[in-house]
Amino acid sequence: MSVGFYFDMTRCTGCRACQVVCKDKNRLEVGTLYREAHSYSVGSFPSVQAYSYSFGCNHCEDPICLKNCPVGAIYKAEDGTVIQDQSKCIGCRMCVMSCPYGQPKYFPEKGVSGKCDGCYGLRQNGSDPACVAGCPNRALEFGDLDKLRVEHGPELDDGSIVVLPDPDETHPNVLIKAKDCAFDEGYRELTW
């Protein structure tokens, strides 16, 4: 079994509510983000299109963070969630440096890394991950990838939109209902 996120790009407005609700749930201070939304435009004035994407841990099928952790602090829970046992972390930052998605984050003041656990604890109580439950526009879902694929149809992208790294490296468990413009290499970030 694999779990991961479904992202509906056609509903994401780039409001970054997911980013802040994640900081709230994980009590992250300024400087650390487990999830972040960015917006991009394609084309030039006045023929432009734009889209947003919410980046987070993809609970990869082949998590390189897990593979590269020298102390075995990162493991897969039974449901496929990639989880870190922070008490074992020696702060070597191998996970931080090896993740192509830049996901595990290093806390210099604590000398350890940390990462998204897909709000494992909340899910055990029947809730959605905080970013999913907090999205005002219902752009995110989390769950069994096979079920999400059945529910949202076969036309989903598996993480090959141009703002993401090649999915072949870690096989991210992410399903994206992408806009066509998200495959245009000539994108520019909206730094507003």
Binding site: K25, R27, V71, G72, A73, Y75, A77, I83, D85, Q86, S87, K88, D117, Y120, G121, L122, Q124, N125, S127
Partner: peptide, 29 residues
């Protein structure tokens, strides 16, 4: 929350701890 995890790991060696890591619970429980 961190203290709670450490209690769960306290009896094992470093390597054994991976097996005994308490899966995350809702911190607001």
């Amino acid at each position: 929350a961190a203290a709670l995890s450490m209690v769960g790991c306290s009896s094992g060696t470093t390597l054994q701890a991976a097996d005994k890591h308490e899966l995350p619970t809702d911190p607001a429980k």
